[in-house]
Design a protein around this nucleic acid. Structure first.
Lengths: 344, 344
DNA sequence: GTGAAAGCGCTAACAA
DNA sequence: TTGTTAGCGCTTTCAC
């Protein structure tokens, strides 16, 4: 592995500006104890020379770590890549670097990544993706993050409530409610749910929303077939096959995210089942391709890019006594994959 | 921004193992000059204590930088997020960190990002996305990367030939040829091309392939309408609108990437033009949704995830005298968006 | 307001 | 084979 070469150092800037190392450092850090003119001159010179501080030296000397660690399940899942896009935007504006690593939807692996990031002394950790309903699974990560924060690190979560850190929380329950109401409003009584594994809070929250909608109509989630699979297209395919086999009377499939909905649509197409004439389908998230599918997908829009931005914004604020929570809002986007329940 | 807290240091490990700092350093780095037993004991102790080296101190002291800088146009473009997925996989296996930044399809911004990464002392730079046909545009980046390499950095490009560095090169020309042959074989004579801006080598290479196919049939690219737009869905929409307006006799649209093809399909759907009965459409890349569109998209598959892996693999090898080139291979994937040219 | 000097934790010469 | 020591480039006391 390569070694860094000789480059512009702060002394060079200081020399050119005719000040001491310490003054130059203060000026560039924007700390006070430097006269305005001197500070300006230093910044000017630094600009001209194209000086960029060596982050290793800076961090080692007890300065700020300017790197953000972002933990996602899988970067090539559009949900996460859009979030990452938002994070990278803000980071770019702030001159921060973003390190991305995969947790692979696996709590143990996630914990390893977390520890690695902490050992690497990142300044900020952003952790995205559903949390686990079982508090024991979250406990270690929570502990690790708490220690990290006590040592001065900053943390924000995206889509997890039980980590004891600042969090951006998608409107999962409200979104589930909106989808449920939408399908019920179209006259669907035989609704099946394509869900991910039950241990995820995202799944539980979205289901709770659906349940709330059903209860408004004097029904409940218990009556619906819920097939548990993965939050992926393949998961959607598997769930759809099972629904078609075990619950042929179904007129609407509610997939708990868009990836699953895409898998559901593919399966229905393979079975030559008309959407929405014979079967309505809804997803969740509104990833960018949702509008380009055929039929285009009715779904709940979450502002993924903004969620990434919000998370980093939160983490850039000083830590507060209590963990902050930011709700994302949501929008029901009605497209062509849903229609009135077929009349028999 | 936070400061790192007090943590385990190498001296602590050395002390516990009853050796000096230097010996401990050597033992953990796996360098020789340490007896096997001592080395083992040090590693043992380090393990037990859960010691992880401080990368800032390590790098500052002239050690290896273990971070990889990955420059992509836009991480939430599936082409790039799949590449990033491959890079992150390999990096995870090697214990490397991946820093991702956006160039935003803008040579100047890309140059800034490059300089920033270099200033940040990353050890490896991976640069993905089409290069520019104008050598002057590439010149600065090329120069910057050459200097970086001379200082011991490693670089690999994905999809760019003119950077003078190791490169993973997608089969753009051969893929273009395959698509051209496919459409001509279906009897299409009125083919229009939805291309991105002409300054990109990817565009030129793919067009060259199409031209080669045409020439085999006694024709040439000059006869075809080529609409230049962006490598995005919106770009595809704009191009399709223009093609429909100016070249209504067209029976096949060849989009130079899948994003554009998706935009083209959306536009055709809006115009109620049947695909493939009245119009065939092809894309390029085979992003994962291509198979889930309706109609599913005929396209050329590039192994994006592998391309990411290959690029990092290349960069991890020692630099060779001449820049290496790895071709990716490609596969024509025929799906439902192409059919025989309509007979009049 | 400014400068001199002491580290931060590590690697790599240089000694032993 | 092992230990000692001088930096790497920066931030931050502590003097002035």
């Amino acid at each position: 592995m390569p070694k860094p070469g000789p480059r512009l150092r702060l002394v060079d800037v200081a020399e050119r500006a005719g000040v001491s190392l310490a003054t130059a450092s203060r000026a560039l850090a924007g700390r006070d104890g430097v006269s305005a003119e001197v500070a300006d001159r230093v910044r000017q010179v630094s600009q001209e020379l194209g000086y960029v501080a060596n982050p290793y030296a800076r961090t080692l000397a007890g300065g700020a770590s300017s790197t953000v660690g972002l933990v996602v399940h899988q970067i090539d899942d559009p949900y996460f890549s859009e979030i990452a896009g938002g994070v990278i935007q803000v980071a770019g504006e702030q001159g921060l670097l973003v390190q991305i690593c995969h947790s692979g939807r696996n709590p143990e692996h996630e914990l390893r990544q977390l520890r690695h990031l902490i050992a690497q002394r990142v300044g900020i950790i952003l952790i995205a993706g559903s949390g686990y309903a079982d508090p024991r699974v979250e406990a270690e990560a929570k502990q690790e993050l708490a220690t990290f924060q006590d040592l001065g690190g900053r943390v924000a979560a995206i889509g997890r409530h039980f980590l004891g850190v600042d969090a951006v929380l998608p409107d999962n329950e409200a979104g589930g409610l909106a989808l449920g109401e939408h399908l019920l409003g179209l006259g669907h009584h035989r609704i099946a749910v394509a869900a991910a594994t039950g241990g995820l809070t995202t799944v539980l929250d979205r289901l709770a929303g659906v349940d709330a909608a059903l209860r408004r109509h004097g029904r409940s989630l218990d009556e619906l077939p819920i097939v548990h699979s993965d939050f992926t297209r393949d998961g959607g395919r598997i769930a759809a096959e099972q629904i078609l086999r075990d619950h042929p009377e179904t007129t609407a499939i509610l997939a708990l995210n868009d990836s699953m909905a895409i898998g559901v649509l593919a399966t229905l197409r393979a079975h030559r089942i008309a959407v929405p004439e014979r079967m309505s389908v809804v997803g969740f998230n509104d990833v960018s391709v949702a509008s380009d599918l055929a039929p285009s997908l009715t779904t709940v829009r979450l502002p993924m890019t903004d969620m990434g931005r919000m998370a980093l914004d939160l983490a850039l604020k000083p830590r507060s006594r209590r963990a902050r929570r930011r709700s994302t809002g949501h929008t029901l986007v009605i497209r062509d994959s849903t229609g009135p329940a077929p009349t028999r």
